[in-house]
Each structure stands twice: as structure tokens, then as C-alpha cells.
Write a protein that binds this DNA or RNA. Structure first.
Length: 510
RNA sequence: GGUCCGUUCGUCUAGGGGUUAGGACACGUCCCUUUCACGGAUGAAACACGGGUUCGAUUCCCGUACGGACUACCA
């Protein structure tokens, strides 16, 4: 590493392509970029790579901003907030790329190619097993400014014959790059392709645009998924040809997020196959005309998703596993990022969500809980709503669990667990429950502990073991044999409702 | 097919020439709870294989196997 590299201001970019919804692997890449920038006191930049007009998807760009905003990954420079190197959207930078491509032509580092799609197709088919390469070995047999006469080329250019500009990869050379995660990677140029730099529509390809923009925006580290590793040598060659080697960013290729089955990287379609979201936010699938729920809609908390994602491929080297974003910034370092692909395990995400849900204040639950308690005609003061929340919170992984758990208790049962009734319902139970419902009116202190004590003493007064009727009490009140603390349920239901439910059961049950 | 990358419990991972190979998720058992869950405790569970190097390799080197990525005028 040169002195320049060590002293250089850290400037990293997240460079998504707005060709569809951002997927969860992209979110992790954004997170790692963000953490590296913040840790170093550098800049986190968002650059939109929309050079492919044919794949433009309306709303995709806004979706990226919304997703990052939800997660709190704030950019220092972006199409939204601008910055010293604006514009940050490649489609708005079109005027700069052709000049750089021409510069490469002039220095004999690139050339014009006139092969049509059909011709290339034929060339590929002429050799077996997908072994075709457009490079030093084959380029003289194809139609380009290296194989054609200067007159021919000039004439075609003048006549506007469609053409691309290709990188002239040296025949015999070695490209080496020192990846921050993988160490030295060496590739011989004979195995590389003469990649297209400028497309026939005048748009740059990813390879050109990415290198030019990273240079112009003074990017210090390129942190991206491992799927880019094979094309990294092409990028290194580009820096060399442009004479920018001293300003070349350092590369870090992140391990991929794999399907839970381990066979292949996680893809956008996997959400349905495996039953968990692969998008941060809800996404409308245009082709199928359906909305696909994201992490947010499924009830995941941003702090939980962030914590989960951070640990997918990185570890702090300590046994700490709960990290706020700020703590992640503090603890993060590139050298603790793993090399191997990481399978996606939604169980762990749920576990994090449960943890962070417990940390949320009552106010987070209040407005979801209020309507169902009001609807049931029960006491809905904030104080009581808070009690309802605490009754079920620790058994909930998502906000929606809190709602359904409370809903289940608040709704009077119309069916009673048959197995329990069949095995436990008898005269003693009937007598005990009947008596309890009556005598409840006399209980002065209305709280769970008092109710419990009262229940026990009343049953014992009747010569009935409390345990014999306790589960039945739950069944007549809620319909089921399992659930949150029964005495608190009675407290929250109130005397009238509790007694009413017991009496109703007494008339319905044998 | 070619190029590149990878390989520690089922999963995420720590570790690293001599360790009882550590933690977490999930799972089992027990405790708590006269319920379920939460919580607590505890258990089962891993160094892909073969050669080297070495007194000694899971750790270093080389192969093999397996897996993955890439192989577009997509990013």
C-alpha cells in the first residue's frame, strides 16, 4: 500500500443499478460501505448506475433511497443531496464517458468494433463449450479497427455504421490486484476478454463508467459483491491505461449471500421459495402485478435487520452480538470480513427482531393495540393499554404478534378447547367457577396478585384444589389452554367481562 | 468447458503448529411457570479428503474433491 493510499480520505460508494428492487444482498453491501466510511470519518456516496436504458424500471431509484432511509444509512453525497462531484447519476453524466473512451482509442488501448450481434453470435457458436473470447487471439478475425484497413474504418465511422469501442487487452501480461479480503489475485490477460467499453448507442458499459466515475469522484475503496471479482482485472487494466494507477481505489470483494440451501446466490425470486423477504421494502412486481412484502412490512425492525446483516459475513472478534448502528461503526473493520459465501438463515433474523422488539417503548405498540381494545369495549386508558402490551410483549417476535395475542384474549371465546373440557370439566369445576364468578364482585383490590390470592383461597374454601380448575378457568375465559398470564388477563378484562365469560360458559358447557 | 474465489458443529462464526476446538441461532433435556411462551441451566453437534513440512498439524505448502461466482453492446 502506498503512502498515498494510507493517507487518503476514505470515500466509498454504493452504486446500485435501478433495474428493479434493491435486494437484501445489496442492502448489506450498502451497510458495509456505510460502516467503512463512518468508521474512517470518510464519505459514503450513492451513485446510480443507470447506463442501461433497456433495463430502466420506474420507481426503482426512489425505492433505493427509501430503503436506505428506512435503515438510517444516510449518504453524504448522492443524487438527492448532491455533492462536490455531482451529478451522481450516470445517465446525467453521459457527456463525459465517450471522451475517455476516445482517449483510449488514441493511445492504442482500445479500438472500434463493428461486429453485429449476429456475427458475434455465430462466432460463439463456432467454438464449443462457451469458450469464445474476443481478445488478442481472435480479434484479427473479427471486424474491427485493428483487423480492417484504416480507409474502411474511417468510411464506416463517417457513414455512421453502428460500432462499439472495445478494450484492447494485451496479449501476454499479468494483472494482479491486492483485494483487501482475498489477498493477491492474479490473472493472465490471455484469459481476459476485450470488454466493450462504449456501446453502440453511445452509452458506456459498467466497466468504463464505473472506473471513470470512481476516478473522478476520488473513490478510495471499492466495496462490492464477489460477483464483480472476475471483472476486477479489467478495471485494473483500465486504471493502468488511463494512467490513474496511483489513484486506483483499493478493492474489497464481499462474500456472497447464498440461498438457505447453499446452492447459489440469493436471488430476488428466492423470497417466495423459502418464505422470507428478500427486499427491504414492499415492491410492486410489474410483470405479475402483485405487491411483494419487504422486511419492513413483515414487521422487521430496521435495527434488527441491520444487526443481522452486519453479522452475515463479518464478526467483531469478540462475543458481542448485539450492535446498534453506532456500535457497528465503532467495531467494524474490513479485515474481519470473511471470505466464504454466507447462507441466509431467517431464524437468526427473527431472533434479533425479538430482541429489539423488547427494547421498543410502549409508544411503538400503542396505536396498534388501542383499536382492538376499544373495539372490545374494554378499558383503554394508556395505562391499561400499556398493561396489555406488557402482557404479551415478551412472547412476541413482531408487532403483529402483540396484536394477535391481545386480539385472542380480548375477543370472547365462542369455542372451548374440547380436549381440556372433556378431561377436566366436572361438578367441582362447575361449582368452583360459578362461585368464583359470583364472589369476584366482593374483591376490593383489583390486580393480578390479589386475584390470584383470592382465587386460591376461595377454591380452598370450597375444598377444591385450585390446580383442578385453573386451566378450565383459562379455557372458559379465552377458549384455549395456553396463553399469557391468566390473572393479568382477568385483571385487564375487568370484573364484569370476566364474570360474564365464566357465566356464559357455565350455560354452554354440560 | 475456461478463469477466478472459497471449504471449522445443520446454520452464522471464533481460533490457529501442541486447545477439553469457544460463542450464537436452531434442536433435545431440565428448571421457572399449576398453561404456552419468555427467561435460566444443560446436552448433542464441526476442522472435506490425500500427500508433504514438522517432534507434532484443524492451523503452513501442494494436490484432489466438493461448492460458488463470472464467462452480454446487464450491472
Amino acid at each position: 500500500m502506498t503512502d498515498y493510499q494510507t493517507m487518503r480520505e476514505v470515500r466509498v460508494r454504493f452504486a446500485p443499478s435501478p433495474t428493479g428492487s434493491l435486494h437484501i444482498g445489496g442492502v448489506r453491501t450498502a451497510l458495509y460501505n456505510y460502516l467503512i466510511a463512518r468508521k474512517a470519518g470518510g464519505k459514503f456516496i450513492i451513485r446510480i448506475e443507470d447506463t442501461d436504458q433497456t433495463r430502466f424500471v420506474p420507481g426503482a431509484e426512489q425505492y433505493i433511497y427509501n430503503s436506505l432511509e428506512w435503515l438510517g444509512l444516510v449518504a453524504d453525497e448522492s443524487p438527492l443531496v448532491g455533492g462536490p462531484h455531482a451529478p451522481y447519476k450516470q445517465s446525467e453524466r453521459m457527456d463525459i464517458y465517450a471522451g475517455y473512451a476516445k482517449q483510449l482509442i488514441d493511445s492504442d488501448c482500445a479500438y472500434y468494433a463493428f461486429d453485429t450481434a449476429e456475427e458475434l453470435d455465430a462466432a460463439r457458436k463456432a467454438v464449443p463449450d462457451n469458450t469464445f473470447q474476443y481478445n488478442a487471439a481472435t480479434r484479427m478475425n473479427l471486424r474491427n479497427s485493428l483487423s480492417l484497413s484504416k480507409d474502411e474504418v474511417d468510411q464506416m465511422l463517417r457513414n455512421g455504421v453502428p460500432h462499439v469501442i472495445r478494450l484492447k487487452v494485451p496479449k501476454k501480461d499479468e494483472i494482479r490486484l491486492n483485494d483487501l479480503i482475498r489477498g493477491w489475485v492474479m490473472v493472465h490477460t490471455s484469459t481476459m476478454d476485450d470488454k466493450v467499453l462504449l456501446k453502440s448507442d453511445g452509452m458506456p458499459t459498467y466497466h468504463l463508467a464505473n472506473v471513470v466515475d470512481d476516478y473522478l469522484m476520488n473513490i478510495s475503496h471499492v466495496i462490492r459483491g464477489e460477483e464483480w471479482l472476475p471483472s476486477a482485472p479489467t478495471h485494473v487494466l483500465l486504471y493502468r491505461f488511463f494512467g490513474w494507477e496511483d489513484r486506483m481505489p483499493q478493492f474489497a470483494h464481499l462474500p456472497l449471500l447464498l440461498k438457505p440451501t447453499g446452492d447459489g446466490k440469493l436471488s430476488k425470486r428466492d423470497g417466495e421459495a423459502f418464505g422470507f423477504p428478500v427486499f427491504p421494502l414492499q415492491w410492486f412486481d410489474d410483470q405479475r402485478g402483485i405487491n411483494i412484502a419487504g422486511y419492513k412490512e413483515e414487521g422487521y425492525l430496521p435495527e434488527a435487520l441491520l444487526n443481522f446483516l452486519a453479522l452475515l459475513g463479518w464478526n467483531p472478534g469478540t462475543e458481542q452480538e448485539m450492535f446498534s448502528l453506532e456500535e457497528l461503526v465503532e467495531a467494524f473493520s474490513i479485515d474481519r470480513i470473511g471470505k466464504a459465501g454466507t447462507r441466509f438463515d431467517i431464524q437468526k433474523a427473527k431472533w434479533f427482531n425479538h430482541h429489539y422488539l423488547q427494547l421498543r417503548p410502549d409508544s411503538y405498540f400503542m396505536e396498534s393495540v388501542r383499536p382492538i381494545v376499544v373495539e372490545a369495549g374494554l378499558n383503554s386508558t394508556d395505562e391499561n393499554l400499556s398493561k396489555w402490551i406488557h402482557l404479551v410483549k415478551d412472547r412476541s417476535t413482531f408487532l403483529k404478534d402483540v396484536v394477535t395475542e391481545i386480539q385472542a384474549v380480548v375477543t370472547p371465546p365462542d369455542l372451548y378447547d374440547e380436549t381440556i373440557v372433556a378431561s377436566k370439566w366436572n361438578e367441582d369445576a362447575r361449582k368452583g367457577l360459578s362461585h368464583f364468578a359470583q364472589s369476584l364482585q366482593n374483591l376490593a383490590d383489583w390486580d393480578a396478585a390479589s386475584i390470584k390470592h383470592f382465587f386460591n383461597t376461595e377454591m380452598e374454601g370450597l375444598g377444591i384444589k385450585p390446580g383442578k380448575v385453573l386451566q378450565l378457568l383459562r379455557v372458559v375465559l379465552t377458549g384455549t389452554g395456553a396463553g399469557p398470564d391468566l390473572m393479568t388477563i382477568i385483571e385487564l378484562l375487568g370484573k364484569e367481562e370476566a364474570a360474564g365469560r365464566i357465566n356464559k360458559a357455565l350455560t354452554v358447557l354440560p
